[in-house]
Design a binder for these strands. Structure first.
Lengths: 341, 341
DNA sequence: AGTTACGATTGCAGCGCTGCAAAGGACTAT
DNA sequence: ATAGTCCTTTGCAGCGCTGCAATCGTAACT
């Protein structure tokens, strides 16, 4: 049994296929009488427009790709959770891809013609890509970048004010009387821009408080995973002069760090205070609950999608902009102690 | 600047468009000489096949939809993480949708013609849908169901042996000397089949050990979230005779339950042992680490995708089958105590 | 009444690709 | 030399829809 097409509906309704199309899309003016005839025919036949054909005809796919390094990283999962409804509201379906942070894979995706016209635009959260890689990409692909990178003018970037957020986090630790503060997550190489901004905030908070920065307390990690947190924290604990507080560049790192600390029989925050970054759900239920910087994920998703749709609709190139979403410091038990909720 | 099409390549290479198509798809036999000519032309023009057009022409979209209730639930995120590469390997792109467990939304998705030919098949993890809903769906849509439901013969179901897994979990608690064991997560209504199976396993373990089941210790929850765990556990703790162990129907519930217990100043597992279900990453890093039933997610993803692709390729209706992936009991600190790794 | 104007409807062509089956060409067998 | 065979290449038509511009019909105007 063949699928029902526009033509079938047109025949039954006694109008031209074009008119059926007009009704379906609400394009031109259509007489209420005609509309009703057509709608009845549609209902009777159970007609469903063929999205593929529609897309081919008008040259747009109606899909946007969202590319993240890891789907099972809570931060990205939560972000996606917000992006999907936003895209749907804008009339777009979401195609998801994960890259494992692989530079080459990411590069292919933003490269010339990668898409085969399968999606109209892309929201990407790159991990392996350097600024350079982004610049030589397919310029015709409407692109919005989340997180790591900063716009070079050919794409938009959505993030939060990392320096200020980090400044807030570290200042919070200082205000609690901590003096030997470590940072876990610096990435002093090309692809670690976000990390570097956080380190800047870390330094700035020290400077503002008149505190010296112990460079040996700034620990680099390849990723922001739990294992990175465990490894880095273990190294810190092995020192003669461990820190009394740690600013972790993600909640996962914080989770790993806490795991390491408690594993040694030490207490959080009594012995070492911990603050994370991202405000993932785990942090609200772990033991202790994790103080964190909470980026406004809904706003990030909203901004990214809106901006991308605008880009897709725009006739020519659109200058890239930096868009900042809000963030809040959320103190919890890992800095305040059991007294905190 | 128009996009490069098959025709452009054909012209440059001095062959017919059809031949270019043959080269691109490796269809018919093509002389090495011809192939090279065409490939050179492709490279020179930077030609990329238009997937949309291809799909329209051969009537398949090359996409499968994966529908989950919540993307940010770690279990689903981890499952997706496994499904995407499996699908990609099979030549399919993954379109993701989340339903918030809303029955109507889920129903629409599996309903007649929902897809508009946008995807060739669907993997769905329903929450709100009853068996009945699934039965009246669009029978022409190749469908693989994960988790909750059991096959009615028109679709495939992939899951683990819930009864045995639950039996294993509870038997583990009993073997540790626990006697008052609660269960959190039963759902004695139409849409809670998986939960009911787990409750069956719970009873079976009691029976096998010659232990009576205290019905009042079987707590129902609407979902398997952390908040459900907190709520249910709090109620249990408020009783005069709280349990000495709890079998939670998800790791999130377990996480919430632990949160509630520790919040009361009680210890896990000394006062109350906890075992969860799903083996999400959090459970490996939380404090205490959470004993759990670990379903083989890779196998689930693999089976689901393979089976779906087979269904899509099949000419006629395919009888639905039940596919079981493996599972393992993973004892951790929440039952064994700090001694455990 | 004749003309203009405007809204509703339509026809055509084509988006870029592939299924099908036939045509062309080279080569072997008789 | 001629027919037969097999492999490569091709042309046609059409997937189902929409952009465009033309057409039709009717209401509003002089």
């Amino acid at each position: 049994m063949r699928d029902v097409t526009l033509r079938d509906v047109a025949e039954l309704a006694g109008v031209s296929p074009r008119t059926v199309s007009n009704v379906v899309n609400g394009y031109a003016q259509v007489t209420p009488a005609t509309r009703e005839k057509v709608e009845r025919a549609i209902a009777e036949l159970g007609y469903r427009p063929n999205v593929l054909a529609r897309n081919l005809a008008n040259g747009r796919s109606g899909q946007i790709a969202v590319v993240v390094p890891y789907l099972d990283t809570p931060y990205f999962a939560e972000l996606l959770q917000a992006i999907i409804p936003a895209a749907r509201k804008g009339g777009y379906n979401v195609l998801i891809d994960q890259t494992d942070g692989d530079r080459q894979h990411e590069g292919e995706l933003i490269g010339r013609g990668s898409r085969g016209f399968l999606f109209d635009g892309m929201i990407i959260s790159p991990l392996g890509l350097s600024q350079q890689d982004l610049t030589v990409r397919d310029l015709a692909l409407p692109l919005v970048v989340l997180g790591e990178r900063v716009s070079d003018g050919t794409f938009d970037h959505v993030g939060i004010d990392d320096i200020t957020a980090s400044y807030d986090a570290v200042t919070h630790l200082i205000s609690l009387g901590r003096r030997r503060i470590a940072a876990i997550g610096d990435q002093p190489y090309a692809t670690g821009e976000a990390a570097q901004l956080r380190t800047r905030g870390f330094r700035k908070a020290h400077a503002a408080a008149g505190l010296p920065v112990d460079e040996s307390l700034i620990i680099c990690t390849a990723r922001f995973n739990r294992t990175d947190g465990v490894t880095a924290m273990t190294a810190l604990l092995d020192r003669d002069d461990p820190p009394d507080a740690v600013f972790c560049y993600s909640d996962l790192v914080a989770s790993g760090a806490i795991h390491a600390i408690l594993g040694r029989g030490l207490r959080v925050p009594e012995d070492i205070a911990i603050i994370g970054y991202d405000d993932i759900e785990d942090g609200r239920y772990s033991h202790p609950t994790i103080s964190t910087i909470s980026p406004d994920k809904t706003a990030i998703a909203q901004l990214a999608v809106e901006r991308l749709i605008m880009r897709i609709a725009a006739p020519g190139p659109v200058p890239g902009v930096e868009l900042l979403a809000g963030h809040r410091l959320i103190p919890r038990q890992s800095t305040l102690g059991r007294a905190a909720t």
